[in-house]
Design a protein around this nucleic acid. Structure first.
Lengths: 100, 100
DNA sequence: TGGATATATGCGCTTATGCGCATAATCGCA
DNA sequence: TGCGATTATGCGCATAAGCGCATATATCCA
């Protein structure tokens, strides 16, 4: 799973990458917040987060009726380095909402 | 074109990533060499290289009947950083030949 | 228990992606 | 000019990916 291709595939989608950008603040974010900020449908957002989770990039935690996502803590250094390098690339209108 | 998503998409394919690994030595490599080392069909290899070229990651140069590919020299620093980070991830049997 | 909120998932559809096959295009050389 | 070697490309096909819609599931609260 630490193979580069699956990592890159997980990141190579605008909405997913935008979600990673949000989670990069180190905090927890529920699906509802992510879908609002990214202007995504509920099912769409849910599935994309599931994909990121399957790739091992994020972790989820149930909190009452919410599911809080956060970046995986114990990530391989090489993987984390790739993510950091990717985030260093200025974000386009990747999957932004009103961009405000 | 410097947007992260297209960069990641270009890299998120085993054969293409394996080609980048080969080109990372800084030298020039013809399609014939790449297809041999990676065990890819001629048309397949040609198209993948075209994809990398379209993404701005490689440059081609006609040399007699050969087309020599090499990593793009004047690449954005952020892009180069991503590539380097990706290459730091140990290669699986990505698209290797006899692995010998 | 019942309703409201939040998230996940089955299903079908549309589009994108990767592939092989055959063929065209390019170039060197006899 | 004609042939061999190398690379690109048109075409059709199979599969993967992303999406919306509806529905199921989980949790809280009255």
């Amino acid at each position: 799973m630490t193979d580069a291709t699956s990592l890159l595939s997980a990141l190579a989608e605008p909405t997913r990458l935008a979600a990673i950008r949000i989670l990069a603040d180190g905090g927890e974010h529920c699906v509802c917040e992510l879908m609002l900020q990214l202007g995504a449908t509920q099912s769409r957002m849910s599935r994309h987060m599931a994909a990121l989770k399957a790739a091992g990039l994020v972790t989820d935690r149930r909190d009452a009726q919410w599911v809080r996502y956060r970046m995986t803590a114990d990530m391989a250094l090489e993987v984390r380095a790739v993510i950091d390098a990717v985030l260093a690339i200025p974000a386009r209108a990747d999957g932004l909402r009103t961009a405000a």
